[in-house]
Design a protein around this nucleic acid. Sequence first.
DNA 1: AATCTCTTCAACCGCTGGGCT
DNA 2: CAGCCCAGCGGTTGAAGAGAT
Length: 351
Amino acid sequence: MGHHCCSKQKVKRGLWSPEEDEKLIRHITTHGHGCWSSVPKLAGLQRCGKSCRLRWINYLRPDLRRGSFTEQEERTIIDVHRILGNRWAQIAKHLPGRTDNEVKNFWNSCIKKKLIAQGLDPNTHNLLKNKSNNSTKKSNNYTYHNQDSTSTFTIDTSTNKEIISMDLKSTLATLPTNFPHSDNITYNYTPIVPNIEYQNPTFVWSEQRNQSTVITTLQSQTSDQRNLNTTRDSMLDFASCSLMESATNINVSSYINENSMWHGTGLEPTTLNPVNGQEEEMQVGDQQFPIIQTKFCDDKEDVYKVNDHDQTVENAFDVNSNFDFEFMNSTFVPCGLYSNVNSMDQLSWDC
DNA sequence: AATCTCTTCAACCGCTGGGCT
DNA sequence: CAGCCCAGCGGTTGAAGAGAT
């Protein structure tokens, strides 16, 4: 039985032969696809238009990128999926040359299993409920540590002044030169997953600025991967970011990465010019940035919502309430996915 | 070598929404 | 407004290949 769209025709189904591919390619490169339902007849194929369209989009298009997904692509998929869910077509738009079908297959066959192995729910990206009772336990002081490293930091919610205190046992030699620095702002840095060998260490920093405290996690690439001295693209590779104006007035922002989108209120995306150290407001369409796809939260063309993430972040950094472990789990643990942390057993929380 | 099991991924199916009449 | 057509999307299927027994 053929498709309903072409039930009157005698159509072939199943795998495409090289001859069929050749016919389709020749037709589309010569005439364009036009109306897909007319393509089979014009191209001399015993297929339905829907099948032709799918074959072209997913396999024959010249701009397709074949081969294995890179680590960067994999990270992008996870980051965007965390916000958008199973919207494969939207996710694929962030991966030039990749199709929604390809992304979906890669997710189902590879990433999903990897997340589960990490103890993460692939749907929510949070810790699986039965992994640890600690994940829902709340207290004022917490320590996160990676068991096979020396990195620890303490989150102290008992005071408004010091949101995060850090135990910088781990080496700061891995700190990329592009990290925020300024004479007027105090920054504290710590690697969540310190590993000199690791190419993309994840850091957290907090900064005190006037009466605001900004707490940011950053997944950064090392300087040998980017020419940090000549480009300004290095500062906005955020995993997440929040700004606390006061205990009662919290503004929230979330970033996917520097190539994609950001969302939130109250915090304009800024970057520091590595030449003069001055903070600059990020300009959409600024050709000096490779961030031409950046979307503002009120951008009419492409609005991204962060589902329940907003609420989680608010809870997490409301110093008048208990600290939210779910946020920490969902934010920091994924940052370690590409590090030397291979399973949830290597990560733990002490309360 | 044969058989079974698992994994991958191309292709299909059913549904939705937009545009047109 | 209803009905139709079409493109596009996400879930699912199943053939083919890889690996295990």
